[in-house]
């Protein structure tokens, strides 16, 4: 699954502005995580219309970047985290999603997918 990350200044109204742009263009947010560092931060989102979101956000003068993430069921997070740990795969960050799901960004996606396949754990990429 492709995730968008957006650079935002850490000030009142900036997140509202981002969500307004998405809403106006009928783009639905499926998951969101925010990381902040002082006067700025990064908002990570999973949305339903990926290409369109990039276009409208860039048109709104936002710095946008994309990354590949893995989505699994929240119920299996403990098990997956343990497996990844044993295999030396780091989870860089994670945030929850509706439908009892969790979004993971790992440092070695190919190995991570192989492990999930081998163990028969359901995931979305």
């Amino acid at each position: 699954m492709r995730q968008l990350s957006i650079f935002l200044e850490n000030r009142p109204g900036r997140l509202a502005n981002l969500l307004k742009v998405l809403e106006e263009n009928e783009i639905k947010v499926l998951a969101m995580g925010i990381a902040e560092a002082g006067n700025y931060g990064i908002v990570r989102i999973i949305i339903d219309k990926f290409e369109k979101a990039i276009e409208v956000l860039r048109n709104a003068n936002m710095a946008v970047n994309q990354a590949d993430v893995i989505i699994i069921d929240l119920d299996r997070l403990a098990e997956v985290a343990k497996l990844f740990g044993e295999m030396g795969i780091n989870i860089d960050y994670a945030y929850t999603m509706n439908d009892n799901k969790v979004v993971l960004k790992v440092d070695n996606e190919i190995n991570a997918i192989n492990i999930l396949n081998n163990k028969g754990i359901k995931f979305i990429v």
């Binding site: 995730q3 990350s5 650079f7 990381a35 902040e36 560092a37 700025y40 931060g41 990064i42 990570r44 860039r58 003068n61 936002m62 710095a63 946008v64 970047n65 994309q66 990354a67 860089d92 960050y93 960004k105």
Partner: peptide, 12 residues
Amino acid sequence: AENFKTDKLTEL
């Protein structure tokens, strides 16, 4: 930059 390189806050 509009196409800034990273999604990781630490790199920023």
